[in-house]
């Protein structure tokens, strides 16, 4: 068995094992912490499709994370206040149903990604980074100046949303739900990377002109990747909002986009489990270092610097070898 496969298996099992141990010890806070890591991992797995496979360094993925979060916030807010979202032409009610909220989060973030991608993918390099950053900030300032949904203060949801057959207020059950989604998305991303679409996307990252000569349009490939990537990050946003039972404009902030990139770089760009490793490491460092110092991010920054300088393949690359393989 390849070293990376073994490492991926260990990383995959680490979350449920740690959550199980925390459950046995009665440490519900730790279960919530692991759930947070799993949601961050999901968001970064989404971004990794665009960044790792497609080479698209997006500094605007927080826009999709925030859209997912606000999709949950708005639907749940109207459900808990018994007010319709809209009653002009027809009555549109809110909902507390997680599957419905997820669908709305996925659809709205995919739609936003389609619009943002269609414009920003006409640029490349630093211009692409800047235009995605600009879009992210547009959503951020829009959320701040939207008093109907809390403006700068955000929106609190008093009770976690429902999932059929589960008590989502139970941290372990909510973790299981998040972990199941993360597993499904990881499986799908693994398949996608080996499918003709993923291979062509990876080829377009290496050389767009060569890809064109075999009849593949790099723009369309990248746009599809960007939309899928945005949709997955949007789903993560909805779960994150449900975890905290709170949404605020900070979900749209460029620092959030930066954190997603940090997860990927720490874990390994383009590696299937790179974002998982990076998110786990980041949340662990946050948990261990933030009580020690208010400036704990300096230590994370130092680690990131060391990874970029001496371990270009990230955590996975350092332990499993630098070569990215698709089998």
């Amino acid at each position: 068995m390849r070293r990376e496969t073994i490492l991926n298996t260990l990383l995959y099992l680490a979350m449920p094992v740690a959550a199980g141990l925390a459950f046995v010890m009665g440490e519900t806070f730790l279960i919530t912490l692991i759930t947070r890591a799993a949601i961050f991992a999901l968001a970064a797995v989404g971004l990794n499709l665009a960044l790792g496979l497609g080479g698209l360094v997006s500094l605007g993925h927080a826009a999709f994370f925030g859209i997912g979060g606000y999709a949950m916030g708005i639907l749940a807010h109207h459900a808990q206040t018994y007010t319709p979202i809209m009653d002009t032409w027809f009555v549109l009610e809110g909902t507390k149903s997680m599957p419905v909220i997820w669908l709305v989060a996925i659809a709205s973030s995919a739609l936003a990604a389609l619009a943002i991608g269609a414009l920003s993918l006409r640029t490349s390099g630093v211009y692409f980074i800047m235009i995605t950053l600009a879009f992210g900030q547009m959503f951020y300032y829009f959320a701040i100046s939207w008093p109907a949904y809390g403006g700068e203060d955000g929106l609190s949801i008093y009770v976690r949303n429902d999932f059929p057959g589960l008590n989502t207020l139970d941290p372990m059950q909510f973790f299981a739900l998040v972990f199941a989604i993360l597993s499904g998305v990881l499986w799908w991303m693994g398949r996608l990377a080996r499918a003709p679409f993923g291979l062509a996307l990876s080829a377009a990252r290496q050389n767009a002109e060569r890809v064109e000569t075999v009849g593949l349009g790099p723009f369309r490939l990248r746009l599809v990747a960007f939309v899928i990537s945005g949709a997955v990050t949007g789903l993560a946003g909805a779960l994150f909002a449900d975890l905290n039972r709170f949404v605020s404009p900070t979900m749209f902030s460029w620092q959030m986009s930066g954190e997603f990139i940090v997860f990927i770089v720490l874990g390994g760009v383009g590696r299937l489990f790179g974002p998982v490793a990076g998110a786990m490491l980041f949340v662990l460092l946050e948990h261990l270092l933030s009580p020690v110092s208010d400036f704990w991010l300096i230590y994370v920054g130092t680690i990131l610097l060391l990874v970029v300088l001496f371990a270009r393949g990230g955590l996975i690359g350092s332990l499993a070898g630098r070569e990215v393989a698709h089998d």
Binding site: R194, L199, S202, A203, Q206, N207, R210, V324, H326, D327
Partner: peptide
């Protein structure tokens, strides 16, 4: 000019 980071099959 092959895609260097892909295998022959890929």
């Amino acid at each position: 000019r092959c895609f260097a980071n892909l295998t022959v099959r890929e």
